[in-house]
Design a protein around this nucleic acid. Structure first.
Lengths: 348, 348
DNA sequence: GTGAAAGCGCTAACAT
DNA sequence: ATGTTAGCGCTTTCAC
């Protein structure tokens, strides 16, 4: 690797001047020498030795990204959004996966500290805020798409309340009055947020909700199947089911079809997350898509802002999702979308 | 951050001795001082400054991971496998996403060079080998799950031929003799490998293949739909269709169902990749799963081996996949698996 | 078995 | 506007 010294030698200037130009310092250097140095650096293929720079400046252009499950439905897209912004500014990311069970979280942070990362991004992590702060040495951080309870002014999260009301309102607009709900795992804060949004939206519209219409599920297809069976067995059948995510919705769909009913004609079903499941099931499932890439971008912008200004009074940012109308809700536009996506004639 | 100097001071020894202990040098240090230094380092929470170490040793404990699409179906799991091995050995990964279109590949590698990465992993990349080597400065590298043509002794890739023959043989064992094929995008080397394996397996079993039974597709659902329609319109209907991936298989499934036929009763269908699609479609699709996590692990082990021995004569490693029997092929065990997975009574 | 000291490439404080 | 130089934390050669 070619060093600053060689560039200086070839350009016929001191290494200090070269450093000033090549490290984007705002120190004044004449246009002529600057241009010359840039030219020489380009010709010899100079690339700064980050270790040396980092040792000197205590900054590394490295951002630590810590997540619970790298291969989740959300993490990869969020990370792409983060990188999209960060790479353009010359930062690289050290992405480290820490499963929930693992006790080595502090070690990982310490390790990243050893690499002098400039800041941290936590994706889908649940680590209590206080525990985290101790380890962070006052470095900037941001939390994206977190799970669980505590609120944190540094977080960028989906607006669960708004998103959940989106699908419920959609059903109400389609004329449904008896809407049932399948909730997600009770441990998750988002479960109760989504459930509450459903209840509030129903009440605000003046519609009651029967006890038998609310089933406690566990985020997966079999659970959706069982919950729907319970709902179907209630005193008064609902005309629609809102599920807390697409897997539950798909399970519910299977149960409704197995019961000999038609979707959406007899019962409409909507989900949440815009999984592949919702795009592929038959009928396709109306759902809410989360702007994951955008959330990653916002997180990174937020971080860059902290890095530049050290101004630390941020507020939790709630990001709205988007209603994706497909077949399972019975809205006319959903059927057209389906036919277009699959280049397939619509049934009958 | 606490430095080696402080540890030395507290332990009452020189920094050289501390370095010998804490950098796992094989230089002899007495058991007593070694234990003491370790104890002190633990107490004060010492973590080495990687920049300083890297500047001195020209090694960084950083591995560059370059991939085309971070949020593909395969990449995240492969990266997890890579990290699973590498993290345990004290390496961290710099994961960089470079879309195919981008022209900045050389820059990215140079950038990673600047960070003194010790080695490279290329995931799903197609960069011609020769172009790549020039930029790599003789650093170790490995290629996982690559696409496109050239062979490379440093690559760990699925055994397309074996995997593809797996599904075809499965159909033959179930008694099928007229098996059609929907191929993937012609640009992909894996497409022709899978197609060839199908042809070879059919011929080896003594069965002919009609022209109308082979359709050229493009890796997506609509393409599978159209290809299946073409196959259904051929002179003699096949009793089974092998698709080059699960999306094509799912498209084919839709077409067969739309044609009023039953799957697997009238026509069996099998896919490839073990997507969520294949797990969720109705009927579920028999397919081949790729051991992506394992491939990542093997790639990392391979890299560690290169890093330690500088012994560079490796051979391309072909990794076999596993047949996943579900409903769409008509095998009896597939139906049982389906019922168990969905906790749902099997239809009639 | 241990210590002293040089120096990796760079930035920034201090000259000029 | 440019040059000189100290020193970031670490490893390693050399001396003892």
């Amino acid at each position: 690797m070619v060093t600053i010294k060689e560039v200086a030698h070839i350009a016929g200037v001191s290494i200090a001047t070269v450093s000033r130009v090549l490290s984007n310092s705002d120190y004044p250097v004449s246009q002529r020498t600057r241009a010359n140095i840039l030219k020489v650096a380009g010709e010899v293929g100079y690339s700064p030795n980050r270790a040396a720079r980092s040792l000197r400046t205590e900054r590394s252009s490295l951002i630590g990204v810590i997540l619970d499950n790298f291969s989740s439905l959300w993490a990869p897209v969020i990370v792409r959004g983060i990188q999209d912004v960060l790479h353009k500014k010359g930062y690289l990311t050290l992405v480290v996966n820490i499963p929930w069970e693992e006790h080595s979280r502090a070690d990982v942070v310490k390790d990243l500290m050893g690499h002098s990362v400039d800041a941290f991004v936590f994706v889908e992590t649940w680590h209590p805020v206080r525990e985290r702060l101790d380890m962070l040495n006052n470095k900037p951080y941001v939390i994206v798409h977190r799970l669980f309870h505590e609120s944190d002014p540094h977080s960028i999260i989906p607006d669960e309340t708004y998103n959940s009301s989106l699908v419920v309102k959609h059903l109400l607009e389609l004329g449904h009055e008896k809407v049932a709900y399948i909730a997600g795992d009770a441990n998750y804060f988002s479960s109760s947020q989504r459930l509450d949004a459903y209840l509030d939206t129903m009440h605000a519209a003046g519609f009651g909700v029967r006890d038998g219409w609310i089933a406690q599920g566990e985020w997966c297809i079999p659970s959706g199947y069982q919950c729907a069976q319970r709902i179907l067995a209630s005193d008064e059948m609902p005309s629609a089911i809102v599920a807390a995510n697409d897997e539950l919705a798909y399970g519910a769909l299977l149960a409704v079809l197995d019961a000999g009913l038609k979707v959406p004609d007899d019962i409409a079903i909507v989900g949440y997350d815009n999984n592949d499941i919702s795009r592929i099931s038959n009928p396709t499932i109306t759902t809410v898509s989360l702007p994951l890439f955008l959330m990653g971008q916002i997180a990174a912008e937020n971080l860059l802002c902290q890095l530049q200004t050290s101004d630390r009074d941020y507020a939790e940012q709630l990001i709205p999702g988007e209603l994706i109308v497909r077949q399972s809700c019975g809205a006319p536009e959903g059927v057209e979308v389906y036919a277009r996506d699959f280049q397939r004639a619509t049934a009958e």
